[in-house]
Design a protein around this nucleic acid. Structure first.
Length: 307
DNA sequence: TCCCAGGGCATCA
DNA sequence: TGATGCCATGGG
């Protein structure tokens, strides 16, 4: 039975795009409760102002098609969703610039071929990105997604469609009303519960927004601003800037996966080899976060053998 | 059992 | 911008 489609739109892609890599990334074995992956599309809920939407997103090499399922969206909501998808899939980057730098590196040049067309997957919602970092600090990803799901199912809005629920990440306003004990019961540590509620207050009071971060002059100032907030250290600040604000030079130094990938490629001696790490990244000015993303990618097996 | 997970902070020197 | 202990729990 065909789903009723109330509106559809398409976004052209700037250059090469490997849609199978994107789908693989979104469905790589973790239980992310923010979307549902089908063989050829992703379905998720998106809110703009007071419009609650459910969309199917069909990625293909030349374009991404979007279909609205629940109701006809307003013009502003359409524009918001298109911008959201462009940021989520990083459709505006010119990957050739990155591949040019990769080609000059003897032990990393293979990535431009093996992961050709892989685009940096972002996290457009800044509050979600920070909350996700707080949750994920120093615990394994499986457990982190488990906690995230509990938080989302308890405090987030949801849409019921075709027998499934589609969730929105909780607003800061919803988390402000959570108690430490309630988050502790969801297996947050005491500190993480404190951090998250405090950060929700910062968002609700609009002392922390994407616009404020964009207004700051450079990466150094943005890092300093973020790390002045309790619970946000260097790793979280860099991760958030690259995932949510498309900061091209963000490097989550100290990241366990990043260090493992660098050691695996024999690019650093050990996890304390800061100079070795800076030496690698100095070759990728303006594309540091892309290198991080590709190094993370290299830790996982290929999605299909014939790739 | 022990160690490590997509860290950060308090404390001590 | 030193080193160490602690937090929470699950998987290898």
């Amino acid at each position: 039975l065909e789903a009723q489609i109330y509106y559809s739109a398409e976004i052209p892609v700037n250059g090469i795009f490997n849609e199978r890599e994107s789908l693989w990334f979104l469905n790589r074995g973790y239980d992310d409760c923010m979307y549902r992956v089908f063989t050829d599309k992703i379905r998720r809920a998106i809110r703009y102002d007071n419009e609650l939407m459910l969309v199917d997103i069909y990625p293909s090499p030349q374009r991404i098609n979007i279909c609205w399922l629940i109701a006809k969206p307003s013009e502003k909501a359409i524009a918001y969703v298109l911008d959201f998808v462009v940021n989520w899939f990083d459709l505006e980057a010119d990957l050739n610039r990155f591949y040019y730098l990769l080609a000059k590196h003897p032990s990393l040049s293979y990535m431009a071929v093996k992961y050709n067309g892989l685009r940096f997957m972002g996290m457009p919602d800044l509050f979600e990105a920070i909350a996700w970092c707080i949750i994920g600090q120093q615990i394994n990803l499986t457990f982190a997604y488990k906690i995230k799901r509990k938080l989302v199912e308890r405090f987030g809005e949801k849409i019921s469609y075709d027998g499934e629920y589609y969730h929105l990440f909780p607003s800061a306003g919803a988390i402000v009303n959570a108690g430490i004990e309630e988050l502790r019961a969801m297996q947050f540590s005491e500190k993480k519960a404190e951090y998250l509620i405090n950060i929700a207050h910062e968002f609700k009071a609009e002392r922390l927004t994407k616009e404020i971060l964009r207004t700051l002059p450079d990466l150094t100032h943005r890092l300093k601003f973020l790390t002045s907030i309790r619970g946000i250290g260097s790793w979280t600040a860099n991760y958030v800037l690259m995932k949510s604000l498309k900061e091209p030079s963000g490097i989550p130094l100290g990241d366990a996966g990043l260090l493992n990938a660098l050691i695996k490629h024999d690019l650093i001696r050990d996890k304390n080899d800061i100079e070795g790490m800076m030496s690698i990244f100095s070759r990728f000015k303006g594309w540091e976060s892309y290198l991080v993303f590709y190094l993370w990618r290299s830790l996982a097996p290929m999605p299909e053998a014939e790739n």
